[in-house]
């Protein structure tokens, strides 16, 4: 069971209160119509799928319902940090 610290509620809560939102820091292209097919596909389908430290988006679905980011090891599942949207992680892979 992941024990996740919500930076908005400032509390540790169990994994079941949260929903996973995929890789963090994936910016939607500003002008999708100007994208090439490859750029658009890259945005839609291609993720880092990192083995190791992974920045990912979570939402506190059964709590404050706000989004935030987690840096988590995808092998040991250790959570290194959680930080609010707009903030930068302390660890960069």
């Amino acid at each position: 069971m992941l024990y996740i610290y919500c930076p908005h509620c400032e509390e540790h809560r169990e994994e079941e209160e949260f929903h996973y939102g995929g890789q963090a820091h994936v910016a939607r292209p500003k002008d999708p119509d100007a994208c090439t097919d490859a750029e658009w596909a890259d945005y839609l389908y291609f993720r880092k799928n990192t083995r190791g430290w992974h920045h990912e988006l979570w939402v506190h679905a059964a709590g404050c319902r706000k989004f935030f980011n987690i840096t988590r090891d995808t092998v040991s599942y250790e959570i290194k940090e959680t930080y609010k949207i707009g903030e930068q992680p302390a660890i960069s892979e």
Binding site: M1, E15, Q23, R47, R51, H54, R72, T74, V75, S76
Partner: peptide, 13 residues
């Protein structure tokens, strides 16, 4: 599990 993982174990929920 909804999240990316290579840990070869699943979550309790």
């Amino acid at each position: 599990d909804s999240y990316v993982g290579y840990g070869q174990r699943g979550s309790y929920p």
